[in-house]
Amino acid sequence: MGDDILSLEAIGMTWDADRGAGRTVLDGVDLRLGRGEAVALVGRSGSGKSTLLHVAAGIAVPTAGRVVLVGHDLGTAGEEARTRLRRDHVGLVFQFFHLLPHLSLRENVALPGWIAGDDHARTHERADRLLGRVGLLDRAGDAVGRLSGGEQQRVALCRALLRGPALVLADEPTGSLDDRTGREVMDLLLDLTRQEGGALLYVTHSRELAARADRSWLLVDGRLRAEAAA
């Protein structure tokens, strides 16, 4: 327990819970992630996967249960505190990359460092190092609009890992990519996260990609039913 990066205990999430008959998205979810561990989350659309990631990131507050992120109980933290915890301990990867088109590759990667007020030179040095590891250093000054989907997601991976987060949350990171590119990106995501010593929780539709995780869970109607395969 003490080594857990993320601990979700009996998480429940009901939309419009205050209006009586709300829609239950998550129901009694328990999940733990240890340092360096990779866990995949599989489920159909609308099963609550993204909501679970939002809860884990402190973006959404569950209506029931307890979320502990690197020893901090998110339930007792205010909005500002949750934002700071997310900033300092979580890296996010999105299905649609979400890079800022008016910033260069390097600047997009450096963005979390800017937000955190990190040292400028060190941030850019780290951004360049990460870009070098995904093979995009020579294009660090380019605008992101000129990149392919796979390249954009590689930049997004670098951004997520910039500050060496304890936890990387990836919401269908290969969902917008073709199979081959998706596999390449997934390889990078797993490798980089392990090298950086972070835990990874990712959502995917693909059984094949889920199989690459240390553990994988199936989310059905808001419940983590059974461990699918390891």
Binding site: E79, E80, R86, R87, D88, V90, H98
Partner: peptide
């Protein structure tokens, strides 16, 4: 709206 949501997701505070 999307850019601002991203910044917030990446840890930018409301004050920022």
């Amino acid at each position: 709206a999307g850019e601002l949501a991203l910044l917030r997701a990446l840890g930018a505070s409301r004050r920022q």
